[in-house]
Amino acid sequence: MFEARLVQGALLKKVLESIKDLLNEATWECAATGISLQAMDSSHVSLVALNLRSDGFDKYRCDRNVSLGMNLTNMAKIMKCASNDDVITIKAQDDADTVTFVFETPNQEKISDYEMKLMNLDTEHLGIPDTDYSCIVKMPSVEFQRICRDLSQIGDSVVISCTKEGVKFSAAGDLGTGNVKLAQNANVDKEEEAVVIEMQEPVSLTFACRYLNSFTKATPLAPQVQLSMSSDVPLVVEYKLEDMGYVRYYLAPKIED
């Protein structure tokens, strides 16, 4: 028996919104420690890895590990039936071929349940090597979203260049060029407004705008985003979920032909 209850059901709705652009289907791996998911987009350019720890749920029971393969478009249709203040419970029997979502209003006066068919997905779990990144940038997630949106008007790719002074995002296209520079700025009133750079050595990497824009669907999940970069390895874009876990995106760089 698997059962996970989240009073803050809106969080689950936001998590789904953050991945459904990139992934049509994925397997939610449910274990005693929590729920995890790892999947690549259909072009195998990016990878999503998320973790929702069991202690972040209000009630969590997982007698044995279950893999819940879901069509995320269909899951999103069902999640749209939950109000933002609903309590959401996910339930599945061991070896079940369906999953049940229960939505309760805070006053318990309306309870809805939706049963969805599960899929058998042939998913390969990739090993992600531990990496000491050359540059780690922490910045407001809304700012990152804005920069990705703005520069995707200019070109298909963004060059992210990081030095200890700051981080620069650049795009070039038929109409011209655009550059956005952010200086390191830890002395702000609010912690979430800070731009903090930890640099071992400067890096400059090129990434496809399309994927960066998809990653920013996670913006409502966290006030800050963390970008981890090293030469010739995938960029990591991480949104931390308070007291719960994380949503991480990995994006393979573009390289000179």
Partner: peptide, 13 residues
Amino acid sequence: MAQKTITSFFKAP
């Protein structure tokens, strides 16, 4: 520029 894939960095065990 050429787009690399994730599988050229991360391998299935």
